[in-house]
């Protein structure tokens, strides 16, 4: 998958993983990895970017005698998910167009 496309999709995937409850790094990777490949080193910049854009906030809580960082989605983050899903029709049309044109070229 194209790196930029994947990056955009992963950002929304992370937001979706936080949509119903707060989560932490290991759990986010565990929730997303069955759907799309994601590594620890990929998740960190995504979380950082989403936080800087105001799509999520963080808090630290004690777990088994150590601090664990929890991520929570904001209203802006939820709006980003809606925006992404509303673009689905447009993306589908673009995808169909690309496939159609590509097939035409193959026939020629």
């Amino acid at each position: 998958m194209d790196v930029q496309i994947k990056k955009g999709i992963l950002e929304v995937c992370v937001l979706a993983a936080l949509k119903n409850e707060e989560s932490y790094g290991y759990k986010i990777i565990s929730d997303i990895s069955p759907i799309i490949e994601i590594s620890e080193s990929t998740l960190y910049p995504i979380l950082k970017r989403l936080e800087s854009l105001g799509y999520l906030t963080t808090r630290s809580a004690e777990h088994n005698g150590r601090l664990r960082k929890y991520y929570m989605i904001t209203l802006a983050g939820k709006a980003r998910i809606r925006e992404f899903t509303s673009e689905l029709d447009q993306i589908t049309r673009v995808y169909d167009f690309i496939c159609r044109e590509d097939n035409k070229n193959d026939k020629i």
Binding site: Y26, E40, N64, R68, K69
Partner: peptide, 15 residues
């Protein structure tokens, strides 16, 4: 922050 992030992942995987 980066070291904390990897340290937390390490602890979670270790658990």
């Amino acid at each position: 922050r980066i070291l904390d992030y990897y340290n937390e992942l390490f602890e979670d995987k270790s658990e």
